[in-house]
Nucleic acid binder design. Structure first.
Lengths: 259, 259
DNA sequence: GCCCTCGCTTCCACTCAGTGGAATCCTGGT
DNA sequence: ACCAGGATTCCACTGAGTGGAAGCGAGGGC
């Protein structure tokens, strides 16, 4: 920008965004120096920009003086959700009520699943998912359910990449995975056993609107209780169906625009 | 800034933030022109900045081409919550489970309450609160509970202003309100009847950590069923107490840093 | 006590990124 | 065909933004 910029062509906005982007699940709070380094912004520049962001409450300082995402940004984020979460939540709630298990809702974003809502009680098992968190598609129930309903070209390009293998039980062989997806498509739901996290298994169903999987509803429980999974499939499918129906009503179909 | 800026002293960052700030609950989606106008930014400048924000997914376009808050910003916002929501949620869930009523959690921000979490089922009554929404303190249960535990100087300056009056039942006379707050402090919870919305009433309890009300837990129901309110106070207080205890454990006290 | 490290804050002369009014291009309504 | 409203594109001017360097301050080792 103006001034003796060493890296011409870099816009102010890009720096602001780089600073914001420096925060993630593993780094929810940072010192100014860390923030500047992670954002690739010179310290003095970061200092100036951060001051402005802080004033607006886009960023805030924790009790220890470290920087974290501010309230105002959280508030702003709450405006993003489209109809999906609002319509689906009561059904997640109901499913939680009848099963007592961790229930969550996810959408696809790029080649990952993004968890957009979650209902959990006190006996919450290991944190497998987090609202706002991302996980790969193939080892998760919801991811599998979504992937099964993507067009062929998408699935092929998904399988063509090197697939992560978070546990020894994760299926990564393209052939086997493809067969698995066919099963999911045929039976209407996906089951996974310790493919993402040792100690937990899941069932998930796609939410189909006009044949497109706009989201997936999933239920997770401790793998010690894996035998109970099949019992949960019926209520799961029921809830997924009701959400799909609710989304199908009124106005332009769901649209991937927001959670 | 650089160039023929008509309004010297305005930073790029301030413009970016003004654009983001143009979105609110009443205006969750805007055309570029509206956005520019609301943000007080010249159209051509807004056009350029928005393009960059859109690329980063800070903003996104709905199916109709209008702009809305983007996924990335929502995701970022999810990093803001401190320990409060995570620790409290299971208890909201439990309270919802035992009562079946709308339950929500709010903190104070400035002179308003900010709703940071909410659990509701299918028979959700009129939308009194919204996660990420703000309401005045005096006519809401949670607001009343929080206000009652603020220091005197804060309460005085709160009462000194002209108080909104969303319904005919809203108490706005400073004297009466002050007495009401004393009662709340004495009995440990607040009750309101149709003070914020006609047709609904609420009970709320502060979450006290080291004598400071860091948040408030509230329950809302249709005023037709107002007689059931007293029955709900005990479980409400129980849940609030458990949340307070959970927050009291470990490390620096709650801190107002985030929801 | 002294020195060193590491992070934060302030300073300032240079300059190109950012500016915004105006012209142009769409799009949809009549 | 014409018009209105919004979205794009253009471009010459210039002060906002830049970032290296120096100063400050808290903690920790010796």
């Amino acid at each position: 920008m103006a001034g003796g910029s060493r890296e011409p062509g870099r816009t102010v906005t890009s720096k602001v965004l780089a600073l914001l982007g420096a925060f993630d699940a593993e780094h929810p709070q940072l010192t100014l120096t860390e923030l500047a380094r992670r954002g690739g912004v010179p310290l003095s520049t970061a200092h100036r920009l951060v001051a402005e962001l802080e004033e607006w409450q886009a960023l805030a300082r924790g009790p220890d003086g470290r920087l974290r995402v501010g309230l105002r940004l959280w508030e702003l984020g709450q405006l993003a959700p489209g109809r999906l979460v609002g319509l689906a939540h009561p059904w997640l709630q109901e499913l939680f009520g009848t099963t007592g298990e961790n229930v969550h809702l996810a959408i696809r974003d790029g080649m990952e699943v993004l968890y957009v809502d979650k209902v959990y009680g006190r006996r919450a098992v290991p944190i497998v998912s987090r609202t706002g968190g991302r996980l790969p598609m193939h080892p998760t129930g919801v991811g599998r359910a979504l992937l099964a309903h993507e067009p062929d070209w998408f699935v092929s390009s998904y399988l063509a990449r090197k697939l992560e293998r978070p546990t020894p039980h994760t299926i990564t062989e393209p052939g086997r995975l493809a067969r698995e997806l066919a099963t999911v498509r045929a039976q209407g739901y996906a089951l996974t056993y310790e493919e993402m996290t040792l100690g937990s298994c899941s069932a998930a169903a796609p939410i189909l609107v006009d044949g497109r999987a706009v989201a997936a509803l999933g239920i997770v429980l401790s793998s010690r209780r894996a035998r109970e999974l099949p019992r949960l499939v019926e209520p799961l499918l029921h809830a997924a169906g009701r959400i799909a129906r609710a989304l199908g009503q009124v106005s332009p179909p769901a649209s991937g625009s927001g959670p």
